[in-house]
């Protein structure tokens, strides 16, 4: 069992990580982080907002190595804006061992362990890397190969 560092934002049982997005059934807009209460684009009610799993895969849109940060994780770490293949522009942390990431690089998420829960289970969150995840399925490997 894994424990999510951010409950509600991803499916900890999925490999590679899958993000928990939302689709508005009225206007078709896809959100991540998930949208509740009502649709930002068209104002549709919560009943129209459906959970949608999103592949944690996309292209780096913007990058910043953070040098000053109070709290965890300790600086430096790298934040990226990632244009998901599934639509939304999201912000996420890049894997620590990522060397010289560039805007327009293709990235996908792997699980990283950020701690251990009281019951001994690993606390995980997705981090993005330009290297394809080791656990990807044959189908995804073929798709990633096609993109590169």
């Amino acid at each position: 069992m894994r424990i999510a560092a951010h409950p509600g934002l991803y499916d900890v049982e999925a490999d590679p990580p899958t993000l928990s997005g939302t689709t508005c059934m009225r206007c078709g807009r896809v959100y991540f982080p998930p949208m509740a209460i009502g649709c930002e684009a068209c104002g549709a009610s919560e009943a129209q907002l459906r959970p949608t799993p999103l592949a944690a895969r996309g292209t780096i849109h913007a990058l910043a190595q953070v040098h000053l940060h109070h709290g965890r994780p300790p600086a430096p770490f790298t934040i990226a804006e990632i244009q998901l293949d599934a639509g939304p522009l999201i912000r996420a942390t890049l894997a620590r061992d990522e060397e010289d990431p560039q805007i327009t690089d293709s990235v996908s998420a792997i699980w990283i362990v950020t701690g251990t829960g009281d019951d001994g289970n690993e606390i995980v969150e997705p981090a993005f890397t330009t290297a394809p995840p080791a656990t990807e399925t044959a189908d995804e490997a073929a798709r990633n190969g096609g993109n590169s």
């Binding site: 951010h6 934002l9 913007a62 990058l63 910043a64 953070v66 934040i79 990226a80 912000r91 805007i103």
Partner: peptide
């Protein structure tokens, strides 16, 4: 009560550092 993958890690200076990287690109 909003949560984000980059929770607490993107303060205004990083918001604009991201913007700067894209502007330079």
């Amino acid at each position: 009560g909003l949560r984000d993958l980059a929770d607490g890690r993107v303060v205004p200076f990083t918001h604009f550092a991201l913007l700067a990287s894209r502007y330079m690109h």
